[in-house]
Amino acid sequence: MPSEAAVFAALGDETRLALVEQLRTGPASIVSLTGEADMTRQAVTKHLHVLEKAGLVTCTRLGRTTVWQLERLRFDDARHYLDIISRQWDGALERLRVHVEN
């Protein structure tokens, strides 16, 4: 499984975030994904492959068409990781508050 760093690096690009947003409503072909973007199919495909390498999307061939969809469990893993980080920061900030107030 790709690291969390790979997931967040893949999501750190506006184009890839826009593709994730499009796929949020369900699977889509490269043709429909390209129709929303102001770039070539080849460029959109490169972004999709970055998301795929991070484990965020999968693709399926249906005849001559490639359909892309979100890998929702990977997003759940990322959310869980962020929750852990958030709790650690909350704890550190609370310890700092107590230290400063004493």
Rank of each mutant, 00 (worst) to 15 (best):
L23I: 02
T60R: 11
P27V: 01
D13V: 08
L56A: 02
T65S: 11
T60M: 14
I85L: 11
N102K: 06
T66Y: 03
Q88N: 08
G12Y: 06
D38V: 11
Q69S: 04
K46F: 15
R61M: 12
V20I: 12
A6L: 08
W68S: 00
L19M: 13
S29D: 06
E36R: 08
T25H: 11
H49V: 07
T65F: 01
A6D: 11
L19D: 04
H49G: 00
L93R: 11
L17I: 14
E4F: 05
E4C: 06
T58G: 12
W68E: 00
E14H: 14
D76I: 06
W68D: 00
R41L: 09
L33K: 02
G12L: 10
R16I: 04
E36M: 15
D13G: 03
Q42R: 06
A5Y: 14
E71K: 09
S32M: 15
T58Q: 11
C59F: 05
G12M: 07
D76Y: 10
K46Q: 15
V100K: 13
Q42S: 15
L33I: 02
H80Q: 08
V31L: 13
E94K: 03
R97P: 00
F75Q: 03
V98K: 15
E52W: 00
R79N: 15
L62M: 12
E36D: 09
E36I: 14
V50P: 00
R24P: 07
R16D: 03
D77F: 09
S29F: 05
E52P: 01
H80Y: 05
D90G: 05
R24V: 13
A9R: 08
